[in-house]
């Protein structure tokens, strides 16, 4: 376990290739407990790949990644332990369509953490309250709207009581009228002190919630700054150009 001063996530000189393609180049990033980090950057810049390395959905080839005191290497048990401490929310929800909402939330606690089914259900219902859809517990994911599905996915990622939450463009696949309900849930989590790394282009959310903005381009972290400075006085030319495009004039 980490002491408060130590970062809960540490990436040091991380390099990764897809075949000959150098997708992550000397990526170094520290995230403190309770810190809220928003990552942005152009498409293909390696944002997804970077956060997927943190729970080893992708394997890095150079450098070190340490999560909650555990270095990610070949040890399967260590990797599974890290995954239990790190929740992840995907752009495409990835709920299990053959299980009910409640079963989606109790699967990991019962099967991975060995929680008694009754207790797992109680925790799951509390989480569904928190994402404001307890009445959908008995339904199947296919019966819910996109926004509701993503809120269930957030609840599912929380069901093992993770120390860190990773979000990969959680609102990009949503109809515009549903973006707000998901961002609200995420803001709620942030307010409760959850450590979060969020890849998103929702700049309003970023400005309101982030402690740290990270800008990536072509596999490198180009700029790291608090939101006020990042949005109003970006240091890097590429950041300026990107913000100009995305915020629009």
């Amino acid at each position: 376990m980490t002491s408060p001063s130590q970062p809960i996530i540490e990436l040091r000189d991380v390099n990764k290739w897809f075949g000959a393609f150098h997708v992550l180049k000397d990526v170094t990033l520290e995230v403190a407990k309770g810190e809220r980090v928003v990552v942005c950057g152009p498409s293909g810049s390696g944002k997804s790949t970077m956060i997927r390395c943190i729970n080893r959905l992708e394997e890095h080839q150079g450098g070190r990644i340490v999560v909650d005191g555990v270095e990610l290497a070949d040890d399967v048990k260590a990797i599974e332990a890290v995954r239990r401490r790190v929740g992840m929310v995907f752009q495409s929800f990835n709920l299990f369509p053959h299980l009910t909402v409640l079963e989606n939330l109790t699967l990991a606690p019962v099967r991975v953490a060995g929680v008694a089914p009754k207790d797992a259900e109680a925790t799951a219902m509390a989480l569904l309250e928190r994402v404001r859809i307890p009445e959908q517990a008995g339904k199947f994911p296919g019966q819910l709207s996109g926004g509701q599905q993503q809120r269930v996915a957030i609840a599912r990622a929380l069901c093992l009581k993770p120390a860190v939450m990773l979000f990969d463009e959680p609102t990009s696949a949503l109809d515009p009228e549903m973006v707000g309900e998901v961002l609200d849930v995420m803001s709620g989590l942030a307010a409760e002190g959850m450590t979060m790394i969020c890849v998103t282009h929702e700049m309003g959310f970023a400005r309101a919630v982030a402690d740290t903005m990270v800008f990536m381009d072509e596999g490198r972290i180009v700029e790291v700054a608090p939101p006020a400075q990042f949005f109003d006085h970006p240091a890097n030319e590429r950041t300026k150009r990107f913000l100009g495009k995305i915020i629009g004039h």
């Binding site: 729970n55 099967r111 991975v112 990622a157």
Partner: peptide, 23 residues
Amino acid sequence: VPKGQTEAALSLGLSRGQILRLV
């Protein structure tokens, strides 16, 4: 079965065998 299903299950700490069987 979409790859995202396996990834979601992996991210919850399920083992390969469990993922095959349960997901």
